[in-house]
Design a protein around this nucleic acid. Structure first.
Lengths: 168, 168
DNA sequence: GCCACATTGTCAGTATACTGTCAATCAATC
DNA sequence: GATTGATTGACAGTATACTGACAATGTGGC
């Protein structure tokens, strides 16, 4: 049964989905602004961190660790490889998979970009009072976790990698 | 000065930017799931609402009202036109602009999709306790508003349209 | 050893997002 | 009324995101 109330822009402005979209755009804009010297996007940064933490991870498992789509990740990996931040080596025991490793340049950029990333992350929440930042972050963390299965690519953290016998 | 602490995935998982991205992806997934019968994306829905609220708006002002990039919006408008949900008429007094109007089909789909949109929006926050939903929404609204200028395409609500003399 | 099934990386197709550029047009000034 | 400058819509280029499909490969059951 369709509604018949007069439609106002509040139908958009107060919708959580709209607010999440706007906030994501703001977050990306701040990240790019703070990190433009390093030529890394937020997604590329997350992928680099994950490869640094899990050397020799393959693309499928990488997508599970950062909860990004596998298809999308293919292009991201290509770009990181083109910038010589990572290398891909064929897995000896499985001809399908290609293992990902940080290069020296990749490790260096990761080391150097950290302060800028931190600054960008801080700026996102800056307008709120410190107590409110904590509250928002806690609720958001909780919400993302509880909605994990609703996402197309649910997060499967380190646990999902155990059967590889390759970690740490 | 680069840091030297051991890098863990927490550098990603606890970053607000990462959480906003994840939540946005979850929000889109839920919207698409609930509204798949109507063949409308979240962005297309927001554009339709804005055109419904501001009949005869042009693309540039539409981008300001929903805070979406002007270039992106061009394609969105094309798709809405292809679905016959809107029409574009050349402005008589300015040969550059094309005015946007809802069609009957556009008005109908907007009327019918509302319950599904509401359901999707509700599902996003469902995992939280009711009090926490309110808190999160309030903080998020506040944060998006205070960060408005940090966004590449700041929101310029109805006020920005007054000089058109066309509103209401 | 073979066959059904799953997995991996890749690709094509669609839809946001943003940058930068451009021609057409309009407005404002002289 | 011609020039300057701004605005509008369009376009090309890059980077996420997701869907669905595919060949190559791996794994189990038999």
């Amino acid at each position: 049964m369709p509604n018949s109330k007069p439609v106002t822009m509040d139908a958009v402005y107060t919708a959580p989905g709209y607010l999440f979209r706007r906030m994501q755009q703001i977050a990306v804009a701040l990240f790019i602004e703070e990190c433009k010297a390093f030529d890394l996007t937020p997604v590329q940064y997350a992928a680099l961190i994950a490869i640094s933490t899990h050397p020799g991870i393959d693309a499928t498992r990488l997508s599970a660790v950062i909860a990004f789509d596998r298809s999308t990740l293919g292009n991201v990996i290509e770009r990181l490889q083109a910038k010589a931040f990572i290398v891909r080596k064929p897995a000896p025991e499985d001809k399908r998979v290609k293992l990902l490793y940080l290069t020296k340049a990749g490790a260096a950029v990761l080391d150097q970009i950290m302060p800028s990333v931190d600054k960008a992350q801080a700026r996102m929440l800056q307008p709120l009072k410190p107590a409110d930042r904590k509250t928002l972050l806690a609720l958001l963390t909780q919400l993302v976790d509880l909605n994990n299965e609703a996402s197309r690519v649910p997060l499967r953290a380190e646990d999902a990698l155990e059967h590889l016998g390759r970690s740490t």
